[in-house]
């Protein structure tokens, strides 16, 4: 491959990336602006809060509990190498609340919610349901996208609180049942160590990841190509984009909130 061709390919990739970023940004701006403009479709919002939030609790809860438990075992094992096993409660708490809780929630809802939204909206597009909505004087951005995005922003922090609590509980369970920690001391260490800023940052991440997960599902769903392949491709791309964006934004938020 010649140098000119490499430069040309890089240029094409960069242009494509910028175009996509622009399109997603405009889409996000439109979706967010509809949150403040009537009609509000309250029933749709409630239904999406239930689907995205409430129905995600089992998978988020189980994932967080097992991760918190595994984290406690790892910290105990690693800490024992330099006589620092007593830091298990603090590290589990900080690890779960600052990082793992939000990221696990983000990735779980990317898997469960983003894929489902993208597949549903792409199928609606393929079967002309989106066109039908428009002919019935209903804007798909308002009726389909806004309620999902708002539900993501509302339920993200709630799911993160669930994940944080159950993650810490997983660590507590393993530490007190098999690592010999005193339950009261474990709880006190956790409570004393965590700050309001830790919890707040966790909630900010939750809202951001809820927004990204729902937005990617809606964007790829509404912009899917026709046919079964289009639906499959939209679903795959939405989950990939949501997962990568969640991890990238997590890094940026961590850098912004904890190192600035």
């Amino acid at each position: 491959m010649t140098l000119a061709k490499i430069v040309s390919e890089l240029g094409r990739f960069l242009i494509q990336f910028l175009v996509s970023t622009g399109k997603v940004s405009i889409f996000a701006g439109q979706a967010l602006s509809y949150i403040f403009r009537p009609p509000f479709y309250l029933r749709e919002i409630i239904s999406n809060v239930f689907n995205i939030g409430y129905l995600s609790i089992p998978v988020v809860g189980l994932t967080a509990t097992f991760t918190g438990a595994a984290l406690a075992l790892q910290i105990y094992s690693g800490g024992s190498r330099f006589n620092a096993t007593e830091v298990v409660p603090q590290i589990v708490a900080i690890g779960m609340v600052r990082e793992l809780g939000p990221v696990l929630v983000g990735l779980m809802i990317a898997a469960r919610v983003t894929s489902s939204i993208a597949a549903e909206l792409a199928t609606m597009k393929v079967t002309e349901q989106l066109d039908a909505l428009i002919t019935l004087s209903t804007n798909p951005m308002k009726y389909l996208v806004m309620p999902r995005v708002l539900a993501g922003i509302i339920t993200g922090p709630i799911l993160v609180l669930v994940a944080d609590s159950l993650g810490v509980f997983g660590g507590f369970l393993v530490s007190t049942q098999s690592l010999g920690f005193n339950p009261n001391n474990y709880i006190l260490s956790t409570v004393h160590f965590l700050t309001a800023a830790d919890i707040l940052s966790s909630l900010v991440k939750g809202a951001s990841f809820g927004l990204i997960a729902t937005l990617m599902g809606c964007y790829y769903g509404l912009n899917s190509n026709h046919g079964a392949q289009g639906v499959g491709s939209a679903t795959k791309s939405s989950v990939q984009a949501a997962a990568v964006l969640i991890l990238a934004i997590n890094f940026l938020l961590t850098a912004l909130l904890f190192t600035a």
Binding site: M124, T127, E128, Q129, D131, A132, I134, T135, S137
Partner: peptide, 20 residues
């Protein structure tokens, strides 16, 4: 005005396009 204009129309889509 798009919404008011569309209220004058009804459409039967090829595949029905019913909301699942």
């Amino acid at each position: 005005t798009h919404d008011q204009f569309l209220e004058r129309f009804g459409m039967l889509f090829q595949g029905g396009a019913l909301f699942d």
